[in-house]
Simulated scan of single mutants.
Amino acid sequence: MSDYKIVIPARYASSRLPGKPLIELAGKTMIQHVYERAVETGVKDIVIATDNDRIRREAESFGAEVVMTSPEHENGTERIAEVAAIKGWDDDVVIVNLQGDEPLIPQQLIEMTAASLINYPQAGMSSVCTPLEDDQDAFDPNVVKVVLDKDQFAMYFSRASIPWDRDGYKDGSDKMTTKMPLYRHIGMYGYRVSFLRQYHSMESCALETTEALEQLRALWYGVKIHMSIIDEPPGHGIDTAEDVERVEALLQAASS
C-alpha cells in the first residue's frame, strides 16, 4: 500500500533536547533514521518539513526532499498543512505525520495510520491506540486515553481514566475496570488534505485547552478520527538524553 504521502516535521528548537533531529545515533543522524523508516514503506512522496537550515542541509545530504516552512507554527499539524498547500495536494490526498524523533517506528504502524483514512473516507484524521494493561497507567494523567465507538472511531480523548466505571471506582479503587477494554492513545496521526485546509480556521476550543490535547479540537468541530488498534506500543521516541542512549543501543543491536 503506497497511495499516500509521508511528511516528517523536524524542528531544531526543543526545550528539553535542542537540535534533536541532528543527534547522531549509531552512525547516522536521527532525522536520517526516521527518513529511512519512511522509505521502507515504499511510499514515493516523502517530505521533510523544517524551518531550520542545518536540518535542511543534513536532509538534502542523504537525498531527502525538503520543504521549508514557517517558524511560527505551534505544532506539526500546522507545519504539515503548510506543506500540503505548498505542494498543491488535492483534498482527498492522505498524509501520514511521521514524527522526526521516532527512529524506531515500525513500518506497519505507518501503513495502518494511512489505511484508516484510505478505508474510511468519512474520516478526516486517523491515529493509533493500544490496550491498557497497567493499573497505574489507567489513572496516570500523562497517559492519554481514548474511547472508541463500534467502528473504531474516537468518541473522546482524556487524561482521565475513561470510560469511568461508576460502580467499580466508587470506593477509590486503584484497579482499572474489567467491564470493557481501556485504550492508550499513541500520538501517530494521519490527515486528509481536506481536513488540513480547514484546520487553520478552527479556533482552539475549551475542551482542547482544558485537557491540553490538540486532537480534541478536531472532535469539537465534528471531524471524525478513525483509530487503529495495535497490540503493544511502538519503539521508544526521543525526548531526553537518557532516551538517546537507550535508542542508540537498540539501533546498534538491530544492525548487528
Rank of each mutant, 00 (worst) to 15 (best):
M1I: 07
S2K: 11
D3V: 11
Y4I: 07
K5P: 06
K5W: 15
I8M: 00
I8E: 00
I8A: 00
I8G: 00
R11D: 03
S14Q: 07
S14Y: 10
S14E: 12
S15Y: 08
L17P: 05
P21S: 10
I23Q: 02
I23E: 00
E24N: 07
T29F: 01
I31H: 00
V34M: 03
R37V: 04
A38E: 02
V39W: 03
V39M: 07
T41I: 05
K44M: 04
D45C: 11
A49I: 01
A49V: 03
T50V: 07
T50W: 01
D51A: 10
D53V: 12
I55P: 01
S61R: 11
F62W: 04
G63E: 15
G63I: 15
A64R: 01
E65H: 15
V67L: 09
V67H: 06
V67M: 08
S70Q: 10
P71I: 02
E74T: 06
N75F: 07
E78F: 06
I80E: 00
A81W: 02
A85D: 07
G88S: 08
W89H: 08
W89C: 01
D91M: 06
N97M: 09
N97Y: 02
Q99N: 14
G100A: 03
D101F: 00
D101S: 01
D101L: 02
L104G: 04
L104S: 04
I118G: 01
N119F: 11
Q122I: 11
T130M: 13
P131V: 12
E133N: 14
D134P: 03
D134I: 14
D135R: 05
D135W: 04
D135E: 06
Q136N: 13
F139G: 04
D140N: 13
N142F: 15
V147D: 10
L148N: 05
D149V: 10
Q152E: 15
A154H: 03
M155A: 11
S161I: 07
W164Y: 12
W164S: 05
D165C: 12
D165A: 12
D165E: 12
G168N: 06
Y169R: 07
Y169F: 09
D174T: 13
K175V: 13
M176E: 02
M176L: 14
K179A: 10
M180D: 12
I186D: 06
I186E: 04
G187S: 09
M188V: 11
Y191E: 13
R192K: 12
Y199K: 08
E203R: 13
S204V: 14
T209I: 14
T210V: 10
E211D: 08
E211V: 03
A212L: 10
L213K: 05
E214C: 11
L216W: 02
L216P: 01
R217E: 06
W220Y: 15
G222E: 07
V223T: 09
I225P: 02
I225K: 01
I230N: 02
I230T: 03
P233M: 03
P234R: 07
H236P: 05
G237I: 08
D239R: 10
T240N: 13
D243N: 14
A249R: 14
A249Q: 13
L250A: 09
L251R: 05
A254E: 13
A254C: 14
S256Y: 09
S256H: 05
